[in-house]
Design a protein around this nucleic acid. Sequence first.
DNA 1: CTTGTTAATGAACGAATGTTCATTTATATA
DNA 2: TATATAAATGAACATTCGTTCATTAACAAG
Lengths: 212, 212
Amino acid sequence: MARIAGTVGEETARKVRAAALELFANFGYAAVSMRSIATHVGIQASAIYNHFPTKQAILVDLMETHLLELLHAWEGRSRNYSDPVAALEGFVRFHIRYHLDKQAAVFISYMELRNLEPEGFARIEKLRRYYEGYLRKIISIGADAGIFSVKDVPVATMAIIAMLTGVNTWFRNTGRLSESEVEQLYVQMVFGSLNCLSADMLAGLQPGRKLA
Amino acid sequence: MARIAGTVGEETARKVRAAALELFANFGYAAVSMRSIATHVGIQASAIYNHFPTKQAILVDLMETHLLELLHAWEGRSRNYSDPVAALEGFVRFHIRYHLDKQAAVFISYMELRNLEPEGFARIEKLRRYYEGYLRKIISIGADAGIFSVKDVPVATMAIIAMLTGVNTWFRNTGRLSESEVEQLYVQMVFGSLNCLSADMLAGLQPGRKLA
DNA sequence: CTTGTTAATGAACGAATGTTCATTTATATA
DNA sequence: TATATAAATGAACATTCGTTCATTAACAAG
């Protein structure tokens, strides 16, 4: 047998990406063979090479696509916000929602960095730093305006990103909380970590209370 | 050639653990071969099997040892704290310091979970939940006492753990900040995320300020 | 000194890996 | 209808993998 009736190149490439995404996320890049990807697509391993030059290229493709889409999605949304408070809340909700909706791609992009060869690593790392830069900018502007109380903007940026991305390690759709409930909880904690209290929360605090 | 003069079993096992720790952390469990571990120790791959039954057993050993030591270290220190505020500050400082001091072991224990077979996975996961339980308890007590303002204790626990562990992804000894400076920054952000302000910070806030 | 155990070697095993290649068929183009 | 290209197959390649095994030398105990 040879070429199968009805096969289209771009369609197969799409299936390969989807299968690789799922498998890499579940078992790790190094533990997934080209044959297992091919099996999930319903083709032979050698047919993959009609669409991707190497296994490594699939990984880089997945990561790069994910990060570019992430950047594009945020850039489209960030225009809505004019002040740092609204922007930060928007970022938190966006990040959590987006990362929960694309768990597999997120997981790969954070876990498989060490399996990238130097050129690919540089490209991916640049995109991630670019994304982090958006949050850093928000925090920086809010700090300069005296709205956020931040001792160290870069550290706060990394801390918040880690906090938000950590949702992926425990959130389950079948769990106790909905996505929007989780968003709300994290919005409050993130603003708290920047010592930016909402008016009603500030009113609820006892001014005379002694804390460490 | 056969047995080498001066070789002692427990000593070789120690070297194997050390080499595997370093290699797993740098390249990932699946990408590290028994032969490369052996090379780093200065023996043949087959000699490893005098000390560990399988490659998987080395991974489980490393993770289990790390988590048991982590638990033991915290249990020894946690006795010093009587109130939730002191305990939380102590936990934050302990977690950051300990995780920075044992970067490789921490990295493996968080990244290689998916390479564990079911029995090993259950053992390791139980230990990690046990550790998280200590932080959850602190937050829970502080919340009940009205010292922390927490909407959801389990979520706050996971958020803070993720935030703290994230330090490992960016901290470098050669960087701008020392370990204790980082500790201090995170202590403030963690207390902030629980809306627990120190007396001087509270005084610094303008009660009339309008925030979102 | 003899004996049993310990800790190494080096060869070998079968299985699995990423990748290449000749081949074959479906499809688009001229 | 003839031809070039696209997209698959299945066999094969050289490596590498975790692991086993017979063998051997160092060491401890009697």
